[in-house]
Nucleic acid binder design. Structure first.
Lengths: 244, 244
DNA sequence: AAAGAATGTGTTTTAAGTACATATTATTAT
DNA sequence: ATAATAATATGTACTTAAAACACATTCTTT
């Protein structure tokens, strides 16, 4: 294997059984939002090593599917949703991360509107959990969750992705509550509105909230053309340096 | 496989041969810097499908090594260097990305000081290339390179990582040239110096450049404690929101 | 009709980014 | 030696964004 990279010597060994004993999986951190809480969809682990603990939804990548298609498949199977927002985050591959064998997993997070899909919650091993209240999880899934949450926090500051978690129409108050749930901190209402306005993401619908127990706020929706399903690998705009 | 995630049904299948026909590799985008040019270390592909093209240095992950250890091993074997800066960037796993079989690869970039190691350049299939002049490469390696360069560009704006590409002592001019090579754009000298000063990364050595064909500049070094070998997954500081 | 609670907007202060000019110090050419 | 050249070194004005903060408005509830 030395000094070959993926050159001939290594490639030849791909046909050798010894190099095929690492399995590849994907794990999905499926974020939702409800009642001012950021949620994550988890399933009860049924490994005896992790009895009582919760784990992310994942599956092995099959030989005939593209890596980035696997999390879509998992999501479709679990939630029935297509066209969800998905972003690849990081790969985890410590030798002993999975008790049953060597599994390298690629972590993705996705943003889904809890209301817009009927979970197979008859399968009562599948539940939404408050992200803020989660402690230990099965496998290294707490680390994966934390890593994905961190990525999400960075993402929402500059990109209009949180709208995948909201209904079509929403008030600025709802939007701010969502940002606060994701970022884990209180935001100043006046500065928040200024900032969001500056981003130019929203359309004023000239409608008002209804059935709220207080003064109704104006309703907005995301500008058409800004809704993203997945993250482009290739950046369209040049880097903002702040160093010029 | 349906509706199982990594639950029992799937885990049981890990012992089935059919799920072990995906190989896992790592590919390293090894960045260097010389003569005001950002360089990348490449090897000639010896696959007949990619005759004459260059490819990244990589290798299959062995069953008994942690995923994140594999790129260190590749670097050690290729350059003899330990303690290089390494960052995992993205995974690539399209079904047909490798002509010889199904290989999911995890891409890393690393930053090495070209001068500080003796490449095994007797192996004359290993060469430093100007990143700016590279066009097609073997496999999907051009996409991997572009993705890693993009990540590097974002990284250097906020984190003191470029110093892994420089000698211990350097002038601000050298530092600016390096930033320009990485970012692919000219920077204003006065604003650049102000910005770098604001970061508080450097120590003034009270020494001057020598053997330069012009007025010598002052020499600096990175403040001790700032040199990073690898990127922490877990952020130490809270998110800067700019939304408060 | 008054109190309470949430919406909606604006101003001041501070920090950072951008654009731009001049003096200084060494080398090179005359 | 002197002048020209080229790079270092530093400062100032302008613009934009972030942060801190206050008041009036509208609807619900008492």
């Amino acid at each position: 294997m030395q000094n070959t990279g993926l050159k001939t010597a290594a490639i030849e060994k791909i046909s050798h059984k010894e190099y095929f004993n690492i399995a590849v999986s994907v794990d999905c951190v499926i974020f939702g939002y409800e009642e001012k809480q950021l949620k994550v969809l988890l399933i009860k682990s049924d490994l005896k090593e992790f009895e009582g603990l919760w784990s992310l939804l994942g599956d092995l990548v099959t030989p005939n599917e593209n890596l980035d298609d696997a999390p879509y498949r998992v999501l479709l199977e679990r939630t029935g949703l297509k066209d969800v927002y998905l972003e690849q985050v990081h790969s985890f591959g410590d030798v002993h991360r999975h008790p049953s064998g060597r599994v390298v997993t690629i972590a993705y997070y996705s943003l889904v509107n809890i209301k817009s899909h009927k979970l197979n919650l008859t399968d009562n091993e599948l539940h939404w959990h408050n992200v803020a209240e989660l402690n230990s999880m099965a496998f290294d899934h707490k680390l994966i969750l934390d890593t994905c949450l961190q990525r999400l926090q960075e993402k929402v500051l500059e990109h209009p992705v949180v709208f995948n978690l909201l209904p079509e129409k929403f008030s600025l108050r709802e939007l701010q509550d969502l940002y606060q749930a994701i970022l884990g901190q209180e935001l100043d209402r006046r500065n928040f509105r200024k900032r969001i306005n500056l981003k130019n993401w929203l359309v004023d619908l000239n409608e008002m909230e209804e059935d709220v127990p207080h003064r109704p706020g104006k309703l907005y929706k995301l500008k058409s053309g800004l809704k993203k399903i997945s993250t482009d690998l290739n950046r369209s705009k040049p880097v903002k340096t702040h160093l010029v």
